[in-house]
Structures are given as structure tokens and as C-alpha cells.
Design a protein around this nucleic acid. Sequence first.
RNA 1: GCCGGGAUGGCGGAAUUGGUAGACGCACGGGACUCAAAAUCCCGCGUUGGCGACAACGUGGGGGUUCGAUUCCCCCUCCCGGCACCA
Length: 865
Amino acid sequence: MVLSLKFSKAMQQQYPFKQIEAEAQAYWETNQTFAASENSDKPKYYCLSMFPYPSGRLHMGHVRNYTIGDVLSRFHKMKGFNVMQPMGWDAFGLPAENAAISNKTAPAKWTYENIEHMKTQLKQLGLGVDWNREIATCKPEYYKWEQWLFTELFKKGLIYKKTATVNWDPVDGTVLANEQVIDGRGWRSGALVEKRDIPQYFMKITAYAEELLNDLDKLDGWPEQVKTMQRNWIGKSYGCEVEFPLAPSPLVGEGWGEGEINELKTLKVYTTRPDTLMGATYVAVAAEHALATLAAQNNPALADFIAECKRGSVAEADVATAEKKGMATGLFVTHPLNGEQLPVWVANYVLASYGEGAVMAVPAHDERDFEFAKLKSLPIKQVIGRKVFEIRNHDVGKPILEQPVVASSEFDVNRWQQWYADKENTFCVNSGNFNNLNFEQASDAISSALSAKNLGKRRTQFRLRDWGVSRQRYWGCPIPIVHCAKCGEVPVPVEQLPVRLPEDVTMDGVGSPIKKDPHFYETTCPTCSGKATRETDTLDTFFESSWYFARYASFDCDTAMVDERANYWLPVDQYVGGIEHAILHLLYARFFNKLMRDVGLISNDEPFTNLLTQGMVLKDGTKMSKSKGNTVDPQALIDAYGADTARLFMMFAAPPDQSLEWADSGVEGASRFLKRLWKACYEHVALGQVEAYKAGDLSAELKQLRLQLHQTIEKVGDDYGRRHSFNTAISSVMELMNALAKIEATDALTRNVRQEVLQNVALLLSPIVPHICQALWQELCPVSHIICASWPLSDKAAMVQDTVEYVIQVNGKLRGNMTVSREANRETIERMAQDLPSITKFLLEGTSVRKIIVVPNKLVNLVIS
RNA sequence: GCCGGGAUGGCGGAAUUGGUAGACGCACGGGACUCAAAAUCCCGCGUUGGCGACAACGUGGGGGUUCGAUUCCCCCUCCCGGCACCA
């Protein structure tokens, strides 16, 4: 009685979320509950969510991402793992520069203020994060080490310099990001954007293409869709290099055969379809191709056309969707096998950055070549045929005509293109010696014929290109190179690192401040001590986010990029982040992991064992993002309902990997559920403390409740651990609470069962709504603390059922159901099904049961006619 | 354009290995409580026909495989993500 008084006083009738959440968060902070240590007997579990860009305020995507990571972290802690969940800031980037210009502040100041604010917000969410390990990529202690890695890779030749094309705003005189080009114009100036070549540093990611591709097979814990996207991005293909000798031409006049033309005796192309070589009717080169430049020398019209092609953004989506344009160069090449003269065209649909920047065009079979050939009235020659199949009712797909269709009187290019895609059932036609060979045979024969003439050879090609890491921007990590007139490009020695980025700058909107700051760029050569200049470009911000996962393990190490603790924590056991990072970020991080392995820093091959790609949070059908200005501020949600409601709603609204369309309604439902849960515990505790059910004869109703409880324990564990299906976990706990609410009795045994249910509900929900569960546990089990509790085990004995429900179908339609003893044999089940009153009416005279399908413990289907 | 996804009631979603379509929640309608309202609790809620029992239809559209398809196969439409300098 004394106890009951105490509890009814301590526990308020209303659900006081503000007080509960503040108390729980203070408890975790005081007790350093989530501080991770390498000294543990438990298996380690490194749970990492993609760190945020400090844009100013938390958005719903962050709430979703970090709640998912937190649920998994807390669940694994309960399952007995030594958990580390760190947090940090992807702090360099373009938005800070834009904000600095419009707010007349320095990017550093803006960034640090945002970090402070967002950190407060993240703490309000109640994440089980080890904040001791917090990192910000804009701090010299962090970027010092990527500068060091840069110099090491530079010395190894894995970083090199070459020219690359950027978007150039001729009015502002600046390089534009693809995002800053709107409909081919600069977003501030409105000027038509031009493509411009500038020298830049590149990382040789192509040297790792094969391994990056092959190791995808090891990543069983990654979604298939992400691995497929990466495979296609790396794009390994088996094809053939073909050389088309250049025919002499009056257009190039005196220059022909001399000087640079000597290097252009042939036009080299790469094709994945050597079997169609005999169908090539022209060749096309990109506007950037050397042959285009050469042909334009004495051809002003062509020079104008090339200039036109060089207008607009460099983004591949823009290039690939542009209206097809082309111009003949007046040059011809010789077909390497049949000797025909083929015209050389400059075409805007040829990508300069893939293969050789030139293609052989087979308009009969390739859609883009066809469209271009039609536009320019170029010849079209069919070289692939297919056996014709006549489809009759009972012998579908059996070939009845063995003759190929060589030429169609009607122009049926659609069919030809289908045959091109079908490498299995097609063969060459109109191809001289190669007629009747299939794809494999023709590809081999044609490649051999080319090799014999020294005009081509088999080749493996990757679509993946080396990674350009130079940015002509201020708010990024300075590239640690010194340019010396005598010694060339000199990497900054480790003792002179970091090359610090000055933080006290004024952004005037025209170029990077460090490019105009002699204090920054004037220096001496580390090798000869002569006058020299610093590189003023900074690194792509993907550089920082490609290795942060390793730094969390060695967050305070000041002697190396990472230390031996990295090998304890790595690889990350669970990585959680947006699907929009499926290719670039995840590929670069995998690449860096291998680079760090190869310089001896870590030993694992892959950084992320399991990957959960969360779907986008959408608003009005489009991605919620600051740049689109359609964000919903989660702060209002937390203020009005508390973090637990926000967390519960985000987890309940959609499965984590699906996109989630934001809707304000629905939050109320989450809040109502927590209030009901609170009330149920309040009413229970108010009657005095009891033990959870251990033994005793239960009514059918209580047996049923315990059955549901223990089924729910199993389901929720499976939903968290294996399925990552948080929404269904929540709904099954809701169902359990609905069942509990129907039981009103307050006798001792009922109260024991109710205690058991409520205790377990607190445990099951604590990964999702940790604050309220901690408060409820204090009332339900005041002698222990929920943060130390293990994941509950289900009681197998409670789950034994002696009957099974069967569904009865007639011809696949639901017509009845029945309860059958678990021991019933098949004959009994079949007979019982046919004897059901709801079934007998379908078994009238004139019908007969043709077949009975029995799916054990599920259904019976009577097939009648 | 290319690569990868998605589409289920008025809405978010469930159906885990081809086996009861619509769990759970929201919204809505009705009722209880209240002077009244809010909150809370109870009941109903795919569409069509029927007083009803019930029946037919129904998972973006079209075809196919199967005793049985939201689930597998083929074709199409629309929407979303990525496309190398947004992060």
C-alpha cells in the first residue's frame, strides 16, 4: 500500500514529455551512457549515419536518417553489442559561400554557428551518440590528414594533373557548379554558360575500377539496387577498338600529313558491338575531339558549330537530352574491312569523356545513330537478322522459318533495333564473310580481322572516369601543392601540414578570396627554398566525406590519419543514409577505403558491411531540400509534441527505404498512442507494484494475450534486426496495446500478465521512443534501469497452439474458414473443408472436384468444374 | 537520353517464400460523456447492387504463366532518385 501511494504520486496522470525528455537526456549525458570504448568483451557494432551538411537547421530528412540509425544502435546495444554511434559535420561546401555573400559574413562563422544550432537540435532528438567523437571536416585537425594522404597519393602517381572541362560564366568570370547553371545560363549573371578547359588534379579511381567492381560481390549486406547502380556506373564492357585510317583531303591542305596530323593517321573508336562494324555508314566525333579542332582550322562554319556545341553546361543530363546537331567535317575515313569511304561528322551526341570521344555509327541498329542519320540523310545499312518466329496457339516460340529477313521492303527500324538488343537469337547479314555468324562469333571474327590488319584489337573498357578533385572555390580544403618555377609541382611536406585555410575573409561574390590573398599564395618552395606560389584550388567536398567513417575511430589522434583503433571499429557494421548517395559518395568512400588500406592505415577491404538506403522525405512530390525551399522545420514538431512523438511518427509513416511524402496529419496519431501508453501504465502502477507473470492457470483470454505478447516480441525483434521494418514493428505493438486495453479485470493474475505486457512493450519500443520508455520503466521496475536491460526473450511455451485456422477457397476464391486440430491429417482436412456449410453449396450435382490443394496450416483450395 | 526505383481505399501504408487484399494509423461519419466545446471512449468505414444473407468487381494500364498473382514474366503510362562541380 505504501508503494502504491508512492507511485501514484510520482507518476503524473498526463504525459509530461518535456520533463521526461529533458530528464532522460540529462541522465544519458551525466552517465556517459553512449561513450564508446574499445575495451569490451562484447562484439563491436559500429553504426554510422551519413553526417549532415550544416545548412542551418535540421530538416525532416535528418530526423528520419538519425532516428533510423539510433533505433538500430539502441536495439543492438540491447542485443549485447559494444555499440559506437558517432556524429560529425560535413562542413565544407558551396552553400556556406552563397550564405556568406548574401549575409555579409564569413563562411567559417556561418558554418560554426549552424553547427552549434544543429547540435542542440540533434541532442533534443535524444540520439544515443558518442558526442566525444564529434568531428567537423572544416577544422585543420581533420583536413590536415587528407592533405597528408593527398601528398602520399601524389607521390605514388595516383593523383595527377590534366585539363578538364568546366562551366564558365563569361560575365562573372567564375566557374559554375552544375547546380548553378539554369537552362544553360549562369544563375546570377544570366549569361550563356560556356565550356572551358582548365588544368585540374585527378585521382586515379580507374586504377581501382576492377576491384571496386569485383568487391561489390562481397557486399551481401547492401541493397541489390545500389550494387546494380554501381556496377552500371563503373560500366565494364568487353568490346573492340577500331581504327579508321584517315583519307587524304584537300580541306586540310598543306597541313595534311605533317606535324600534329601525324598523330592522327587514324581515327580510333571504341565499340561494344564489333559484330555491326559492316553496318557502319559514318563516324562521328565530339566537338572537343582533336580531329574536329583540326578540321575547323580552315573551316569557319565548322569552327562556329564547334563553338556552339561548347555552349551550355557540361552536365551529362543536359548533353544527352539536347536536340541532336551535327556538321560534316569534309574529312573521310576508310572502313578498315570493306574499304568504303565514310564521312566524319562532328555530333553533339558523342560524349567527349567516354571511350575515344568518337563513335562508329551503325544507324540501322543504334537508336541515336538512326535519329542522326535520318536528320542528315546518311545511309542506313542493316547487318543483323533474326530467324522469324510464327506464333501459333500451341507451339509458341517454335521457329518455323529458318531464313533470315535480310531486308524489309517496309522500313522497319524498330525491329532492327530490337534485334540489336537481342544477342542470343540473331546473326549477321549483309556482312560478306561474316554472314550467319552470331554475336559472339562475329565479334571474334571481326576483331581478329582487324588485328590482322593492325587496325584494331579486343579491349576492355570502363565507363568510370578518373575523379577530378580540384575546385576553384574558397570554402574547401586547400590542395597541398606548391608551384615552383624550378622544381615544378611540389607536395607540401608533412611537417608543414596543415596548409591552413584563412577563415577571416570577406566574400565579394567574384572568385575565391584566397586566389587574391598574397599572404596565402605567396610561399617558398619546400624543395629549393626559392620563391613559389601555393595552389589556390580546394578539394571537392566529397574528399572529406570519403574517409570520415575511419576518423571517428581515431577522432583525437594527432600523429596520424587514423591509428590502430580504426582496425577495431572498422568496417562500419551498419551505414544509414539517403539513396541519393547510392553512387558517388558510396563509390568514393569505397575507393578511399582501398587507398587507405594500400598505404597501410587500415586492413579491411570494404568500409560498410551493411547499408540501409533511406528514401527521400518529399514535400509536394519533390525532394525536401534547402535549395528547393520546401523544407518543413522539425523544430516545431519537437516543441509541440516532443522528440518521441517525432521519432515515432517518422518511423511509422513509411518503411525506411521508401520515399516518405510529408503530411502534417498523422503526427496526432503518434502522439495519441504515446498518451494511451502512458495512461495504461499510470492506471496499472496506481494500483500498486506487482511482479510480471511467472506461473499460474490463465483464462483463455489471458492465454491469448500472452500468445500475442510473445509473438510480438519475436516479430519486433525480426522487424528491427533483419527486416528494418520499423513501421510494422510499431503497428504490431499497437495491436498488442489494443488487445491489452480490452482487458479490464484487476485480479492478481491479470495484473501479473498486464505487468508482463507493459514491461515488454517498454523494452520493445525503447529503441524508437527511448525517453518515454525510460520513464515508464522507472515506474514499472524501479529497481533496475532500462538502459541496462537486454532485449526480451520470447516464451516459447506461451506460443504453443493446438488448433490452426484454415482458409477454404473454391476455384481460388475465398468461401469459408475452419479451425482444425494441429494433428489433423490431410484427409481429415480435405473432408472437413468439403463438409463446411458455406462450401457444400458449391458442390452441387453436375460439378465435380477435380483437385484439392492443401497448403499446410494455411488453406485448402477446391478446384471444381 | 542513360542507369536505378516506385504506383494498393479519401490519405500514409500492411500482406516477410506465389496462398484470406486493405493490418496499423490518419481523415471522415454516427453515438456516449458535457450546459456546450475540446479531450477521451465506443461503433462504422474499398466500389457497385441488395432491407439482408450475400454477390460481382477491385492492387497504375494491357497481355501471359498458375488451382491460386499486389507478389513471377512481357509490353506500356506516369512519378521519384542519380548522371561525375548541390550535398
